[in-house]
């Protein structure tokens, strides 16, 4: 049976396609090195800290730093000093203040009931 031109074309093309499929170009070492260098560069770029990390602070972190431009420990120390100066005065605090010590003697710090048993009258008779 005589084949048509289309059939012959198809057979010839299939044979050419088979040959071409067996002849894939290979990756040269140079080209492979370029591809790997690109990949390594991309990996390195991905390891740059994301927003919000310590090396690259985010908005809220920068906002807090602007409001309180000292470290946590320093802030706590300053806060303690500030509170110390702002607490309202007490008698005890006044007693410790310079110039007021003459208004107190030691009996001011002892219980009144216990002292009565050791009064001068009780001992003498």
């Amino acid at each position: 049976m005589k084949m048509t031109n289309d059939t012959k074309d198809d057979l010839a093309l299939e044979a050419l396609f088979d040959s071409a499929r067996a002849d894939d170009p290979s990756l040269t070492p140079n080209f492979l090195a370029r591809l790997e260098a690109d990949a390594d560069a991309a990996i390195a770029a991905q390891t740059i800290p994301a927003p919000g990390t310590a090396a690259n602070p985010g908005f809220w972190s920068r906002f807090a730093t602007a409001l309180f431009p000292v470290s946590g420990l320093a802030a706590a120390t300053l806060a303690g000093v500030w509170i110390g100066f702002q607490v309202p005065s007490t008698d005890f605090a006044s007693a410790l203040a310079l110039g007021d010590t003459e208004d107190f003697d030691v009996s001011a710090f002892l219980p009144a009931v216990a002292l009565s048993g050791f009064s001068d009258e009780g001992i003498d008779g």
Binding site: D9, A12, L13, L16
Partner: peptide, 17 residues
């Protein structure tokens, strides 16, 4: 494929087909 077939038709003998 039709176009390829037409382009190669005159060459089948040379290509061994």
């Amino acid at each position: 494929k039709r176009a390829l077939g037409a382009a190669l038709r005159g060459k089948r003998a040379e290509l061994g087909y």
